[in-house]
């Protein structure tokens, strides 16, 4: 006997993502899911983003890692609320983890919630968390050929941050080739070359993000 199901495999995650989305909309929180390899500079980019936008928006961070609290401690030391999720081995965050994490945050005080996903270029791409935008970081030392090897993350990201751009001449990084292949995979995505720890290029990225936050707010007010 054949039972017809015709439903998403990740149905449960999708449903919980929608619940998260409703909570974020109700509270007027813009949520960014930031994805990258381990060591690409996710936390440094978040810290630079906080510095640029903290006067304009209430910011909080959810840190996803397999183990440890080091990232949440770095963010907290900056005076920004941070919740650490330890996945205990899982290679990506899922919506139920976000649901638990936000219970520890005062969403009324937050305009921008940054979720730092687990360092991984593959697994986080299939899991909605209820975010407004997924954005990825590639760092120059990883090489310009990564979009050929991990295309999906480049396809689904609304913007691509190219971090450690100050090392571009050292690493033989072919920026033209990188831009060309990202342009094929995702012609709409802007590319922001930055050096998160030095601050170069960060304002172009944070102004883009601020534009997205303000646009989300404006469309929420219209409803």
């Amino acid at each position: 006997m054949e039972i017809d199901l015709s439903k998403p495999i990740l149905d449960r995650n999708e449903r919980l993502a929608e619940e998260n989305r409703r909570v974020f909309d109700e509270k007027g929180v813009f949520v960014l899911d930031l994805m990258a390899s381990p060591g690409a500079g996710k936390t440094s980019t978040i810290l630079a983003t906080i510095d640029a936008l903290r006067d304009r928006y209430g910011i909080a961070v959810i840190e996803g890692d397999i183990a440890s609290k080091v990232d949440a401690e770095k963010i907290s030391a900056h005076g920004i609320p941070a919740v650490q999720i330890n996945t205990g081995g899982a290679c990506h965050l899922e919506s139920d983890m976000i649901q638990r994490a936000i219970s520890a945050l005062d969403l009324d005080e937050i305009d921008l919630l940054i979720i730092e996903n687990v360092g991984n270029l593959v697994c986080p791409t299939e899991f909605n968390l209820g975010e407004n935008a997924k954005v990825m970081i590639l760092s120059v030392p990883e090489g310009h050929d990564k979009p050929y090897k991990y295309p999906n993350i480049f396809e689904i990201s609304e913007a691509v941050i190219l971090n450690k751009y100050d090392t571009v001449s050292v690493f033989d990084f072919d920026e033209d080739d990188f831009r060309s292949v990202v342009g094929k995979l995702n012609p709409r995505a802007p590319i922001f070359p930055i050096s998160a720890t030095k601050g170069d290029g960060v304002s172009a990225w944070t102004e883009w993000l601020a534009g997205r936050i303000d646009a989300a707010r404006a469309s929420a007010e219209e409803v």
Partner: peptide, 29 residues
């Protein structure tokens, strides 16, 4: 994956309509 330009008019900005599925279709019991 890498060549998503419209073959008729050359527009590079197209709307994906298939290829991202992760569906459970049916179960035979």
């Amino acid at each position: 994956r890498f060549e998503t330009t419209c073959p008729e008019c050359g527009n590079p900005f197209n709307e994906n309509i298939a290829g991202r599925e992760l569906l459970i279709d049916s179960v035979d019991v």
